[in-house]
Nucleic acid binder design. Structure first.
Length: 270
DNA sequence: AAAGACACCTGTCCGC
DNA sequence: TGCGGACAGGTGTCTT
């Protein structure tokens, strides 16, 4: 589920419900996530979450005694429920708060993670080698152009590489390349500055649009039944293999790159 | 050094 | 309707 817009939407949806209220209980129902959920989380009892930020797709919940790092993996979601609400089969970790709210991580595939660190967050091994945020000014065509000279890697894998830029998952890589008219297989060293300018514009535009739409379903993060918003109706290539291109009507092609599906238009993307 | 394969896990969908 | 197999929004790590 979670691409960057959903992680950002999650951050916005949960913040008000868990900030500045003491953590009264931490329940680890299943510690077997991507990495074992550390027992040291217990040191956060009675601490308050003072701020929540996001770096790439990691959510960072700050307290005076360290930071909780949460990643949603492929199938994870965070939800606010009343403390005491019946658990779902896949609710693995729960933080209860003095205000009566509980923050629950549900993750059927368990590719997600809940970690804790005491140290400077930028020095954490998972975060220290990450490229810039896609919505920051630091992510721009000059950067992509400079990093791509004399390289042969395919553009799709390049923009999905978190050392180059973070937060661009499979859906938005496909969509941004279609919007930019760039063939996903094109070698990065053979892409002009001009085309990188367009690509950066489209990446930012699409991510921002998705975030703004996610924002319309914030209420769904509270309570038991809602699902995070999705934007299937906005997607022009992802999941549309064989269907007509929205621009030229020729059937979209699917290939695999780095074990991920790529859908594109052989006419419009060159 | 860089590219590719693989690992982690459950749920869902498709074809027979 | 049932069943096996492919595949899924991520990403760190191991192998070429």
């Amino acid at each position: 589920m979670p691409e960057l817009p959903e992680v950002e939407t999650t951050l916005r949806g949960i913040s008000a419900h868990v900030l500045n209220t003491p953590i009264t209980r931490i329940t680890i129902r299943n510690p077997k996530l991507r990495w074992p959920v550390p027992d040291e989380l217990a040191s956060l009892l009675q601490q308050q979450i003072t701020k929540i930020t996001r770096r790439a797709k990691y959510l960072l919940l700050s307290t005076d005694k360290g930071t909780i790092i949460i990643h949603l993996g492929m199938s994870g979601s965070l939800r606010i429920v009343d403390s005491g609400t019946t658990y779902d089969k896949h609710d693995h970790v729960e933080f209860c708060f003095a205000n009566g709210n509980a923050l629950r991580l549900k993750d059927p595939r368990r590719f997600g993670a809940v970690l804790w660190t005491n140290e400077s967050i930028d020095e954490h091994p998972l975060l220290s080698h990450l490229g810039p945020e896609p919505l920051s000014d630091e992510f721009n065509s000059e950067l992509l152009f400079a990093l791509s000279r004399n390289k042969t890697v395919a553009i799709k894998q390049f923009i999905m590489n978190s050392k180059i830029v973070v937060g661009i998952g499979n859906i938005y890589a496909n969509e941004a390349l279609f919007a930019s008219g760039i063939n996903p297989k094109r070698a990065v060293g053979k892409i002009s500055k001009k085309r990188y300018e367009q690509l950066c514009i489209e990446i930012k535009r699409i991510l921002e649009k998705a975030i703004s739409q996610g924002g319309t379903t914030l209420k769904d993060f509270v309570g038991g039944t809602g699902k995070p918003g999705y934007f299937k109706q906005e997607l022009l290539v992802y999941g549309r293999k064989g269907l007509p291109c929205m621009q030229c009507k020729s059937p979209l092609k699917e290939i695999r790159q780095g074990n991920r599906s790529t859908v594109y238009c052989t006419h419009c993307q060159t």
